[in-house]
Design a protein around this nucleic acid. Structure first.
Lengths: 190, 190
DNA sequence: ACCTGAACACCGTTCAAGT
DNA sequence: ACCTGAACACCGTTCAAGT
């Protein structure tokens, strides 16, 4: 994305955007906040807490990776807008519904949101990279060429097939599932 | 970081770097691989597996945030170099030492590495942002101005103090600790 | 073998001028 | 009120020319 490409696509002067947004930063944050609002709005509030959180993470990853220019910046941005707040409220309510204490709600919120936001953003940024990268975009970020050295890296060598089979979306989702396991275990203990 | 600033600082022509690295990408990856090697080399192999992994995550976060230009790109890059491979081997060996099965070693490796790499990179990118951001860099990424609306966001409103108190490094480390709890629980069960 | 410096094709952003 | 287009200060990168 560049302002010149944007102007070309919209049939307007590249600098016309400055009539509507102060700078690139504000534009990106407005787009991101809209995406967040769409995600939060698409999650049924009728779902049990665990399914609700899983659906949120699932949709979040899909949307972020489908909009890689915005998504790549989602991990380190605060929009402060209604979309972000709707997401925040959705996550907090779900964790409270799980039966967690006030303190635990905030702690697990920060873990789940930090995990999902950062890992999804990394997946989007990975996908954004030029084609010069050797691996397909859905493969995990570990280099495979060095895994052929059984002397220096015996354990990595022994697990090379399993490592090569890792895929970003599966890692994201199964990782989130593990976090939800922890939430559930803590909730039933309290 | 820019090639012109780099040349100025090194007292050479900005384009002299091209004698040593093909492009910016190769330079960044070489720097990152060196950082990874330093981190892996600084972890004592005598430590029990859990302390070893904690020390790795701790050092990793510190180093990545201390080198934000490189660190911000660490979440979505594969160096394929000896530093990355040393880190990979270190993590796999530690998880194997915990008593995990082959399959579980790879699964938990992808979770721990994905979590640490992505969240630390987001923290570095956050720190890299211009001073126009209202919040200090060690604060978490949730907007605070909108938390004052008890009607639309009652749960967020009720937890606003706890949310405002969140700090990136604490969230990172306590999140990693939770993941290690899961590893340990799984290991003793197997 | 390594460095230089002009040049190219891009960026985001500003600002006076248009309608 | 909104858009235009020239201009500014940057980028990464190439390449012929120097030592």
């Amino acid at each position: 994305m560049s302002f010149r490409a944007l102007g070309r696509e919209l049939g307007a002067d590249p600098t016309a955007v400055y009539r509507h947004f102060r700078d690139r930063n504000e534009l990106v944050e407005a787009c991101l906040d809209r995406l967040l609002g769409q995600i939060a709005g698409s999650i049924s509030t009728e779902l049990p807490w665990r399914e609700r959180l899983r659906a949120t993470a699932d949709t979040y990853f899909e949307v972020i990776v489908a909009h890689p220019v915005i998504g790549a910046e989602a991990g380190h941005r605060t929009t402060g807008g209604p979309g972000e707040l709707a997401m925040l409220e959705l996550l907090l309510v779900s964790l409270a519904d799980a039966g967690l204490s006030r303190e635990r709600v905030v702690r697990y919120y920060s873990l789940l949101a930090g995990y999902a936001a950062s890992v999804a953003a990394a997946a989007a940024a990975y996908r954004l990279q030029d084609d010069r990268i050797q691996l397909p975009a859905d493969r995990i970020w570990v280099g495979t060429q060095g895994l052929m050295d059984p002397v220096r890296y015996p354990t990595a060598f022994g697990l090379r097939d399993e490592l090569a089979a890792l895929r970003t979306d599966e890692v994201f989702l199964s990782g989130f599932e593990l976090l939800l396991d922890t939430v559930e275990t803590t909730a039933v203990r309290e």
